[in-house]
Computed example of a mutant assay.
Amino acid sequence: MKQLLQQLINGLTLGSIYALIALGYTMVYGVINLINFAHGDIYMLGAYIGFAITTFLHLSFFTALLITMLLCAILGVVLEKVAYKPIRKSTRIAALITAISVSLFLEYGTMYFVKAETRTFPEVIASKSLKLFNGSIVVNTIEIYIILTTLVLVVLLQYIIHRTKMGKAMRAVAMDKEAAQYMGISIDKTVSFTFAIGSALAGAAGVLVGVYYNSINPLMGVIPGLKAFIAAVIGGIGIIPGAMIGGYFLGMTETMVSAYGGSLYKDGVAFAILILVLLIKPNGLLGRNVKEKV
């Protein structure tokens, strides 16, 4: 039982990272039905931006986090305007190929400028171990920072979506683009705002991972990006609570598999769960069957 509780704490930490990245996937898909496979590389760039800010400017963790989120939001808008907006009315395969191309461009463009070697993230948060329940569970202060930061960002996201004008516009566009446009909502501004919010969350995840694992590299966004996509699909892509549930479910599953002797198979288990969910409930755990006229 002690080991189980300890792994649940570890799973919450990893699940928080997956949830932050998955939220970007699910918001973009919900608004324009696009799978942005470059989203994992925004997360990678967020880690490098946080690394540069803390290493060269010697700023604090929260300052670096906020600046990184702002810069990643701007980057997300630029990518949407340059790469995705011109092909918005094209076929889905064209959008998919474009997303993969953007992903490769970001990965190897970053590698060209910062080289391929792994870099050590500076220690911006004092790492201390807190013993709970008479020492049966050990929680690191960095894990607490990650979990609390994720919860705060998710609460802010929910406030933006449900209480602000732009959030209502996002929900309207996701429901019916044409009707929203007839009501005076700017589709372009709404899509750009969606990319900005999703990219900011991915950037925050990059900083948190850099702090947690103390190492970053130009290809670090590939596997977590795929895992976050799996989390979004498991929860029901296009549904924000589903992305959260999928992220935490996947994070806890991976830590349990690793803890009980299957660390070599944790990636395979993630994809196996995806296949199983798609076979049983193709629209995800919180997804709904939608009838489409043909």
Rank of each mutant, 00 (worst) to 15 (best):
K2N: 10
K2A: 15
K2G: 13
Q3P: 08
Q7H: 08
L8W: 04
N10L: 04
L12R: 06
Y18I: 05
N33A: 07
N33I: 00
L34H: 10
A38R: 01
D41H: 06
L45Y: 05
L45I: 10
G46E: 03
A47M: 07
Y48M: 08
G50A: 08
A52F: 13
A52G: 14
I53R: 11
I53C: 13
I53M: 14
S60P: 15
S60K: 05
S60Y: 03
T68W: 09
T68R: 06
C72T: 07
A73V: 02
V77F: 02
E80Y: 01
K81S: 13
K81Q: 11
K81R: 11
A83H: 04
P86D: 11
T91N: 14
I93C: 10
L96I: 07
I97W: 04
A99Y: 00
I100N: 06
S101P: 11
V102L: 09
F105P: 15
L106F: 05
Y112E: 15
K115S: 14
A116T: 09
A116S: 14
E117I: 02
T118P: 14
A126S: 14
S129F: 05
N134R: 02
G135F: 00
I137P: 14
T141N: 15
E143N: 15
I147E: 14
L148W: 03
L151Q: 09
V152T: 08
V154E: 05
V155N: 01
H162A: 15
T164D: 10
G167R: 00
K168S: 13
A172G: 15
E178Q: 11
E178M: 09
A179C: 10
S186T: 06
I187C: 04
S192I: 01
F195P: 12
G203L: 06
G203E: 06
A204D: 06
A204S: 12
L208F: 02
V211T: 09
Y213N: 12
L219F: 04
L219Y: 01
M220R: 02
V222W: 03
I223F: 06
F229A: 12
A232W: 00
I237L: 04
G238T: 05
I240W: 00
G242F: 01
A243M: 03
I245Q: 12
G251N: 05
T253W: 09
E254M: 08
Y260Q: 07
Y265A: 15
G268S: 12
F271L: 12
I273L: 15
I275V: 14
L278V: 11
L278Q: 10
K281C: 14
L286H: 05
E292A: 13
V294K: 11
